[in-house]
């Protein structure tokens, strides 16, 4: 532990300023020079914030609880999932989002920043496929000078076909960088 007698230090400084006229002038110059020499390294700032706002979708199954007589939802891991985006012309987007991914119960999907509609084809267990359509409005959020602007979404409506899926539920409308589950897809 370092022990500094602040009172003595302060008194020394005080006496010095009061009694040593020329030396205090020298002192003030020396300190200024030292200051300038130590302070000229400016580092460039980089963005350390999350910039992706993704739609988080969870898969669930309804389980009948015989003791309470009610259905409760329980997380469902899908054996195999393939997810593609479909553009406004109905063409499948080249880059694939999930390619035969195993044992997933949650997926994250990018919503279209320049459109109010995002459509996805989800293929379950390499056999049955459903189309998920999300209607949304977009809004901008300024993060910082280093990170710039990001575009977030507000979910309006969600449509889904019922081949593998029974229903879909909107849990959270605001799709931003804040981690939250936005949609719940149910399968029985």
């Amino acid at each position: 532990m370092i022990f500094i007698n602040f009172k003595n230090l302060f008194n020394t400084l005080k006496n010095f300023l009061q009694n040593n006229f020329t030396k205090s002038t020298v002192f003030i110059w020396i300190t200024a020079v030292l200051f300038f020499s130590t302070s000229c390294n400016v580092s460039d700032e980089v963005c350390r914030k999350e910039k992706n706002s993704r739609l988080k979708v969870g898969f669930y199954t309804a389980v009948f609880n015989s003791s309470t007589g009610k259905y409760t939802s329980s997380s469902l891991a899908i054996d195999s999932l393939t997810v593609n985006g479909v553009d406004s012309l109905g063409n499948i987007v080249d880059s694939i989002l999930y390619n035969n991914s195993k044992n997933l119960s949650v997926i994250k999907l990018p919503l279209n920043k320049f459109s109010n509609e995002s459509k996805f084809i989800i293929r379950f267990n390499d056999s049955i496929q459903d189309t998920l359509t999300v209607f949304h409005t977009n809004y901008d959020q300024y993060l910082s000078f280093e990170c710039g602007m990001i575009r977030n979404h507000l979910i309006d409506t969600v449509l889904i076909t019922n081949h593998f899926v029974d229903s879909v539920k909107i849990e959270e409308h605001n799709v931003s960088t804040i981690d939250a589950e936005h949609l719940q897809i149910f399968h029985n």
Partner: peptide, 18 residues
């Protein structure tokens, strides 16, 4: 960090000169 460094150096200089 530089401010602190600077302040400490200043104090040392002041004490030493005195």
């Amino acid at each position: 960090q530089n401010i602190y460094r600077y302040f400490i150096i200043s104090l040392f200089v002041a004490v030493a000169v005195n």
